[in-house]
């Protein structure tokens, strides 16, 4: 039977980069994501009952999402740095980038206000761009259920953005 350390190192080798990318996308800060990555593995190392968890990767991702949105709640208004890298073709000048970053902050804050499963499904589907089948396998649900959850999450997100917009107006 392998020790927890070995399992964690294996998880880090297999999914460390994707977990870090997820944290970066949700926080929009590489330095914060780095800190949260450390915190994530400290949590995983000290978690009681982790040996009973079947899918460590799913557990780690859910914990990472919670950590990131907890951080957003605490530091929601922190401005995003300029040097976040996007895929080629997405650069549209400093002003456009500033506006876009502000929009992304608002969007992520709205995602953070969703409830647990909807938030996780939305992140996996639309931010991590995973397929419905993969999400269903990871959450131990059917594809149909995952599609329903995605639609529900999108509706909740729209409502959250509209109510937020109404408040600001």
């Amino acid at each position: 039977m392998r020790s927890r350390t070995e399992k964690l190192l294996e998880l880090l080798d297999r999914s460390g980069a994707s977990l870090f990318a997820l944290l970066t996308r949700l926080t929009l800060h590489e330095d914060v994501a780095e800190e949260l990555m450390q915190e994530l593995f400290i949590k995983l190392n000290g978690a009681s009952g982790l040996d009973k968890v079947g899918n460590w990767e799913a557990y780690a991702r859910a914990t990472a999402i919670n950590l990131a949105f907890d951080w957003r709640r605490r530091n929601g208004r922190r401005p995003a740095p300029e040097r976040l890298r996007c895929r080629p073709g997405s650069d549209d000048g400093p002003v456009g980038r500033l506006i876009r970053t502000e929009e992304l902050q608002e969007m992520l804050n709205a995602v953070g206000r969703l409830n647990g499963v909807c938030r996780e499904v939305l992140v996996m589907r639309y931010i991590q761009e995973e397929s419905y089948d993969d999400i269903a396998a990871r959450l131990d649900r059917t594809t149909h259920q995952v599609r329903g959850l995605c639609a529900k999450a999108m509706g909740q997100l729209r409502d959250a953005l509209v109510s937020r917009g109404g408040q600001s107006e």
């Binding site: 990318a21 450390q38 994530l40 593995f41 761009e129 999108m154």
Partner: peptide, 29 residues
């Protein structure tokens, strides 16, 4: 909404930062 979520999904951390973060997490473990 989908457009903005897609924009978020396109954010990629730097290779150096990723390596550093993974190394720090490994150190922690």
């Amino acid at each position: 909404i989908r457009r903005q979520l897609e924009a978020i999904s396109q954010i990629e951390p730097g290779q150096e930062a990723t390596e550093r973060a993974v190394a720090r997490a490994r150190d922690v473990v």
